[in-house]
């Protein structure tokens, strides 16, 4: 009995030890990757920006983007409840709240159907639009076979842009 406990205990101990090393080594790289994919989205849509400052307002996170010391736009982190998962989006707008572009950062929608929200043609539909243009079937074309995912993204982007008020500085 004692031997069995020892063996299982030792296996668990070494696994945990091994895993903590792997975790320690990969955590900073993973954090960097996430930040990079967020910031890459912003600078693609607002070319020439030289400073990005993260800001939190309540539960929401957004990024203020500067070009030569002046604010040129904002990057908003937006969550939408999709068909199979929570969708994380980056919505980049300029000072007059015109959408410069959106990017899907995270999603677990059905591959081949809802997952198409992260394809370029779908994301590009949002470019140069105002919040009031974002209506599925008019301004934005839905993905065939994935109305719920398309609707979720469109609604979440519209609402977040409508409600967005930068913090007074």
């Amino acid at each position: 009995m004692f031997k069995k406990t020892m063996v299982l205990g030792l296996i668990c101990f070494f696994s945990a030890l091994f895993l903590s090393f792997a975790y320690l080594i990969t955590t900073p790289i993973i954090a960097q990757q996430e930040l990079k994919s967020e910031k890459e989205g912003i600078s693609d849509f607002l070319p020439g920006i030289d400073k990005i400052i993260e800001e939190k307002k309540g539960e929401k996170t957004y990024y203020r983007c500067y070009k030569k010391g002046e604010i040129v736009g904002y990057g908003l982190i937006v969550f939408a409840q999709g068909y199979a998962s929570e969708i994380k989006l980056m919505v980049v707008i300029d000072k007059d709240k015109t959408i410069r572009g959106i990017r899907v950062l995270e999603q677990r929608e059905t591959p081949g159907l809802g997952a198409k929200i992260s394809e370029d043609w779908f994301e590009n539909q949002f470019k140069e639009k105002k919040a009031e243009d974002l209506i599925l079937g008019e301004g934005i074309e839905a993905i065939s076979g994935a109305t719920i995912s398309s609707q979720a993204v469109t609604e979440a982007v519209r609402k977040s842009v409508e409600e967005f008020e930068p913090k007074a500085r």
Partner: peptide, 17 residues
């Protein structure tokens, strides 16, 4: 326990690289 450890390592590596 052994299998789960390797899976976790794969998951961390995929996320990182």
């Amino acid at each position: 326990v052994i299998i789960a450890s390797f899976v976790t390592i794969v998951e961390l590596l995929l996320k990182a690289f």
